[in-house]
Design a binder for these strands. Structure first.
Lengths: 199, 199, 199, 199
DNA sequence: CATGAATGAGGCTTCATTCAT
DNA sequence: CATGAATGAAGCCTCATTCAT
């Protein structure tokens, strides 16, 4: 649940909303720096609020982690949508992959969180916002992929599912080579080349 | 450290060695199921020994995680060595990649542990068995790679470093598609295709 | 550290302060009875709080021991200051020694804690409240000593340093004879007589 | 019990006796260095035997601590006996005090162990060797004291009991000033002066 | 609503002691 | 007898979560 009282339509008070944002930002920063096992207290500290406030907004630790993660999914989906109508579908597609990898290369817990998906989603039922965010990203990426394939820039035997898994792996590859930008570029180049049509 | 006080040459008593194996096996199972943050207590339970016994063999939690991980590195290196003299270098190389991915597909903590490498190795100095195991694997894989490149099966602009990072990512990709063997095969195929020479 | 985050000026909430006092009192009682190695759990039990609460107030076992000890130093310094302006410097001085010994006679960990000084202070740097409390006591005692020497009640070849060590020993002597008040008085009398001017 | 199977008259085999001595020596060294909380394993290591052997000789940790302590009492008593017939009773008496303090100044756990006496003796019944060793020391010191008093070197209102407690305190004083020999000498001088006859 | 103190389960680790080899 | 592996209680400390202020 990324929005407390979701569905009851009670819009958060201004200060409450502000706190929520600050907590999310703080959580993102802290999780990036120390991984998602960082203590809630640390997040609260970074956000400049008390722990109680964090728990009011995100009743559970997983709730907070999920919310951070969903935020990222949304930003990625947003980016995918921006590129959707590019006149150069191939460029748009591979450009998006770069964005993804670049994001993953610096954001520590990102790949983990992504990978945790398969598990968590099952465990947390279908109630939360996660499936929605996930679906939106998948849809947006799917469109990018389809156009790129139509344009002949990407092989046709790849579906969104494989692409998704490949990107999760690529994120890890990128993270692994975090410190060497050139090496990272080359490794990702290899992986992405695999997506191009075989002659 | 895969052998306590390694280097002092005192071979463990029969029962001690048996327990050590049981603990390692238990740890592998538990870490696979719940990740390497699983409690030492859980490992002890699975192994059918008391906690104290686990700590006698692996004085520290990281020691245990490392030992499990090193075991995997060794098995992989072993496999790489077996394939070293294959008459079909390209087949040997890609066959090895399959093994790797197959192993990773079921072993949860594997990718994490691998990824943790960069950090842990630095932190744990060069004292343990880890660097050795790591070096051996790298060497064995390097030979496989070189032969495959010489045989024209793999593009020449890929080094062991990139390969390593790519494989770590591929492990994650495979894990992600754990449940769908066909899909997994296709995704890995794409990634591995990226390694073939561009026409 | 006798006040958590001392110096930041945030006064504890009423209930927190109350708990803090209870914990200190409990620690004093428990340490007196079983020595400072008594478990934190025991202290918590005596104070009627959960362990977590003890650790919130005193993040570390040594912190707790130190706090108890500092409390005692302060009480002694207070007593010394009260006696500072006595019209009978010699009486004031020896009266203070009685107080000290009396306190020490019942308080088990006292001598130990005092003795631990040389070590702990070095180890714990100059950050905490300890050096301050220690210095204040030394200063107050120094004044008492100087006046007594000026009044001819105490030999002049004794400095605060020796006096301090002697008192630590006397505390142990007193503790040793805890159960026999008369005997204790005589033993301390002998030790204190050593401080009087030789004819 | 400082002698296993005490009273059954079975004299230890030569190697067993040798081990016993080595363990005692090791324990003395280790306890001096790290205090009596040092692990039995550490003692075993220092002695070059296995833990099991230590426990065979001293079935319990307190047994070992006590044995070490008794050894010291005996050595002190021995020293006192040597001085018993000195032609200079006063010199002999104060010389003995020096020995005592000197021993205590370097031997970490000594004062503690001595002080622990009151408690342990009660707890451990009267069965062990401790009371005997204690009594012998007291007797020997008593003789030294009596002769010194007869010779006018020591005030007559001091008994062995007080003396004992004073010495325990002095040991602590000496330990406190361990690092400064001159200061230590002066402080002990003051304490011992208290024992001289008042004019 | 926010605050931050209290709770207490749970994790890691040490160590006296037992006992199979 | 010696060895050293196994046991498991106990200690310290962390942290998600609750709730009085």
């Amino acid at each position: 649940m990324s929005e407390p009282r979701a569905g009851e339509g009670r819009p958060l008070r201004a200060d409450a909303r502000r706190n929520r944002e600050r907590i999310l930002a703080a959580a993102e920063a802290v999780f990036d720096a120390k991984g998602p096992e960082a203590s809630t207290e640390a997040v609260a500290g970074e956000a400049g609020v008390a722990v109680g406030t964090v728990f009011r907004h995100f009743p559970t630790k997983p709730d907070l982690v999920e919310a951070v993660f969903i935020g990222r999914l949304r930003r990625l989906a947003e980016r995918a949508r921006e590129l959707a109508d590019s006149p150069d579908p191939g460029g748009a597609f591979f450009g998006f992959l770069e964005t993804w990898a670049e994001l993953a290369a610096t954001k520590h817990a990102f790949a983990d969180a992504l990978a945790a998906t398969g598990v968590d989603v099952a465990a947390r039922a279908a109630g939360g916002d996660y499936p929605v965010a996930r679906a939106e990203l998948t849809a947006a990426v799917g469109r990018l992929l389809a156009r790129a394939q139509d344009g002949g820039a990407v092989r046709r035997d790849v579906g969104v599912e494989e692409l998704n898994a490949i990107l999760i792996g690529a994120a890890r590859t990128a993270e692994q080579l975090r410190s060497d930008r050139a090496l990272r570029g080359r490794a990702l180049g290899v992986v992405f080349d695999g997506l191009r049509p075989r002659p």
